[in-house]
Amino acid sequence: MTPARRAGQGRPRRTSVLAALSALLAVFVLAACGSHGSGSGSGGDGSGAAASVGATGFPTAVPAGTKLRVGDQGGTLKAPLDLSGQSTGEPYAVDWSTFASGPLLLEAFRANAVDVGYVADTPPVIAAASGQDLAVIASWQNPAGQLMLATKPGSDIRTVSDLKGKKVAFSVGTILQAYLLRSLDKVGLAQKDVKTVNLLPTDIAGALSRGDADAAVLVEPLASPYLKDNPTAHKVDGADTSPSVQYLITTHKALSDPAKQAALGDFVARWVKASAWRDGHIDEFTQKYYVEQVKVPAETGKLLLAKTSPSAFVPIDATSIGGAQKLADLFTSSGVIPKKVDISKVFDSRYNSAVQEAQQ
Results as ranks from 00 to 15, higher is better:
residue 344 S to F: 09
residue 271 W to N: 11
residue 294 V to G: 01
residue 249 I to T: 12
residue 251 T to V: 03
residue 219 V to G: 04
residue 331 F to Y: 15
residue 279 D to R: 13
residue 236 V to T: 11
residue 293 Q to L: 06
residue 297 P to W: 00
residue 238 G to Q: 10
residue 258 P to Q: 10
residue 284 E to Y: 02
residue 350 R to Q: 05
residue 271 W to Q: 12
residue 321 I to L: 05
residue 260 K to G: 01
residue 261 Q to R: 14
residue 286 T to P: 07
residue 300 T to C: 08
residue 238 G to D: 06
residue 298 A to L: 06
residue 226 Y to P: 13
residue 319 T to M: 06
residue 276 A to L: 15
residue 274 A to D: 09
residue 343 I to T: 07
residue 232 T to E: 15
residue 332 T to R: 10
residue 328 A to K: 01
residue 323 G to A: 02
residue 322 G to P: 05
residue 243 P to K: 14
residue 226 Y to V: 08
residue 221 P to A: 08
residue 247 Y to M: 03
residue 330 L to N: 09
residue 343 I to V: 15
residue 256 S to E: 08
residue 223 A to C: 11
residue 261 Q to S: 01
residue 233 A to K: 05
residue 221 P to F: 09
residue 312 A to Q: 14
residue 276 A to F: 15
residue 282 I to H: 13
residue 290 Y to V: 04
residue 296 V to N: 09
residue 325 Q to D: 02
residue 346 V to D: 12
residue 254 A to W: 01
residue 290 Y to F: 15
residue 268 V to R: 15
residue 247 Y to H: 15
residue 273 K to V: 02
residue 336 V to I: 07
residue 346 V to S: 10
residue 319 T to N: 11
residue 248 L to R: 08
residue 262 A to F: 07
residue 336 V to H: 06
residue 302 K to N: 11
residue 306 A to D: 13
residue 251 T to G: 04
residue 330 L to K: 07
residue 328 A to D: 02
residue 277 W to I: 07
residue 337 I to G: 09
residue 338 P to M: 03
residue 343 I to G: 04
residue 253 K to Q: 14
residue 319 T to I: 04
residue 337 I to L: 12
residue 349 S to N: 03
residue 318 A to W: 04
residue 266 D to S: 13
